[in-house]
């Protein structure tokens, strides 16, 4: 097996402060939940626990929400190149390169390697080679950079070790609930029945998503390992939807204080937090206002800083692709 460590190196290389021990602990608990020896599955014998259950297999919607906000900030910025806007704009009804943008968490490399890969794309991109494959690569790399930058900030609020029964870190479930409750609920009171209804709603989104997939892509390099892990993923996700629904509809006050308030996770007074509401119009923002928006978060909440870090990275990416900043200079900034 090559590069055994590589999957989690993305976070550690990027200087996110990612706690490797926490991840290994999570990995162990998830793997033990299977009651299975890794020896049992074809090529799986070469697995280590940490690579069996990579970070990107966690149910954690907040980083996806942040990437969605990056799309809206990017489209709404007059100075961002049209080609980059295309690469960061998803559409869940169709096959477009921008659907890869939200998968940035999958890229198993740190910022330096990503910037070097971008430098190669830039050589041809500027001459007009902007085909689907190249655009998808750019979308992935842009998503990875924004993800890693925002995670650097988010991880300031991710110092907890408590795991929920689904195996996901409990504090992240509270973050997800805070994001959904603040931005995407409809203001109705929620109690036990609504909690149950929400759980049902979230669970029913899974077959709808599978319909959109047409067919799921297995890992042909290790079909047996894939079968086991994805069967487990169904149960893990099922539990997560219940945990998320509870944290939205009937959150535990002590956990709200511990995971959200004491960490200063989110503050509705932050300009950035208000600006990226899915119902806010962002249009024709100039570079000065964009920089000002980023700088407004210096004293802001963790979420505001995470959004700013992601947007700042997108601004740098735009600058780099336009020739405004060299590779060496950008690498020296990260």
């Amino acid at each position: 097996m090559k590069n055994n460590h590589i999957h989690i190196s993305a976070a550690s290389q990027s200087g996110t402060g990612f706690d490797r021990r926490e991840f290994i602990k999570l990995s162990g608990i998830l793997a033990s939940g299977l009651l299975v020896s890794p020896m049992a599955f074809g090529k799986s014998h070469s697995y280590t626990q940490e690579t069996d259950w990579p970070l990107a297999s966690q149910n954690y919607i907040t980083p996806v929400f942040i990437l969605d906000a990056m799309t809206r900030l990017g489209i709404g910025s007059g100075f961002i190149q049209a080609g980059i806007k295309h690469c960061i704009t998803p559409d869940i009804t169709f096959i477009v390169p921008g659907n890869a943008f939200r998968l940035g968490a999958l890229v198993p490399y740190g910022k330096k390697e990503i910037l070097q890969a971008l430098d190669k794309i830039k050589l041809t991109w500027g001459t007009g080679v902007q085909d689907q494959k190249t655009a998808q690569k750019l979308g992935l790399l842009a998503g990875a950079l924004c993800y890693q930058s925002s995670m650097d900030a988010l991880d300031k609020a991710n110092k907890f070790t408590e795991l929920s029964p689904s195996g996901n870190p409990e504090n992240k479930i509270y973050q997800d609930a805070a994001v959904i409750r603040s931005y995407l609920t409809k203001g109705k009171p929620m109690a036990k029945k609504e909690q149950s209804d929400l759980k049902s709603l979230f669970r029913e989104m899974v077959p709808r998503t599978f319909i959109r997939f047409h067919t799921v892509m297995p890992d042909d390099a290790d079909g047996a390992g894939w079968v086991m892990k994805t069967a487990h993923w169904r149960k893990q996700s099922d539990l997560y939807f219940g945990e998320l629904s509870r944290a939205i509809a009937q959150p535990d006050d002590a956990k709200v204080k511990k995971y959200l308030m004491d960490t200063d996770f989110m503050d509705g007074n932050d300009l950035m937090v208000k600006k990226i509401s899915p119902f806010a119009k962002i249009s024709d923002m100039n570079i000065k206002d964009a920089r000002s928006l980023v700088n407004s978060t210096e004293e802001g909440s963790v979420l505001a800083k995470a959004l700013a870090a992601g947007f700042n990275t997108l601004i740098d990416l735009n600058d780099f692709m336009a020739g405004g900043i060299s590779l060496d200079k950008w690498i020296s900034k990260i």
């Binding site: 990579p54 990107a56 297999s57 954690y60 919607i61 990437l67 998503t209 997939f213």
Partner: peptide, 13 residues
């Protein structure tokens, strides 16, 4: 958002 997360989760393996 869930659709993208499910894509990510499954590909992670």
């Amino acid at each position: 958002l869930f659709c993208s997360l499910i894509q990510q989760n499954l590909n992670a393996y």
